[in-house]
Simulated assay, not measured.
Amino acid sequence: MAARFVASPRGARRARRLAVTWLEERSYPPSSEVSCAVALVVGELAANAVQHGRVPGREFALRLTLDTAGGLVRVEVADAASAKRLPTAAPTSYPEGESGRGLLLVDALAAHWGSTPRHPLGKTVWAELSLTAGEGTR
């Protein structure tokens, strides 16, 4: 599944809701641990794309893929902003402010995550989550 959204808080909410609906159509109900974890990861990555990756006039993209043989769901959120430094690790300390913990949540829920540059511009932040409850966390 792939979709594009306006780079706004509303777009981030719509991306999260679409991910939950997509998983429900694949027999992962909204109350399942898989759906809840994916919703949280999509919400965090989409919020980051809106807050840190927004380029006026550009959207962000969400792609979800399900690998039942490998037991993973892959979440990719792409934005148009080229970062000076791509995210490679979650912060090691908690900031004093109300924000800055999103990648810590992604790190805790995902089996693997990272980022890649997009050409000609932008970046994609991705995360792979286990379809077996509790096995994707570190």
Rank of each mutant, 00 (worst) to 15 (best):
R58Y: 07
R16A: 14
A133Y: 07
A111H: 13
S115C: 14
T92Q: 13
R4Q: 12
E96C: 06
R14E: 14
R54E: 04
E33F: 12
E76L: 09
A110V: 12
L72M: 10
R54C: 06
R54N: 05
R63I: 01
L105D: 05
E25N: 12
D79I: 07
W126Y: 15
T65M: 00
E76S: 14
R85F: 09
L131K: 11
H52T: 03
R58F: 03
T137Q: 12
A78H: 04
E24P: 00
L64P: 02
N48V: 04
F60K: 09
A39K: 08
Y94K: 12
S32V: 08
L104Q: 15
L109C: 06
G53V: 03
L86Y: 10
W113T: 12
N48T: 05
L129Y: 02
S93V: 15
V125M: 14
E24Y: 07
S82E: 04
V42L: 03
G70V: 04
D67K: 05
S8N: 04
T21G: 10
S27K: 12
A81E: 09
T68E: 15
G136S: 05
K84R: 15
Q51L: 13
G97I: 08
V38P: 01
S115W: 13
D79M: 07
A127P: 09
T92M: 08
T116L: 15
Y28L: 08
G57D: 03
W126R: 12
P87N: 11
A39E: 09
R26M: 00
A2I: 14
D107F: 09
E59L: 08
A37D: 15
P91V: 11
S82R: 13
P29E: 00
E96W: 06
A78W: 03
P56I: 05
P29T: 02
N48W: 00
L64Y: 02
L45A: 13
P95H: 07
T124Y: 07
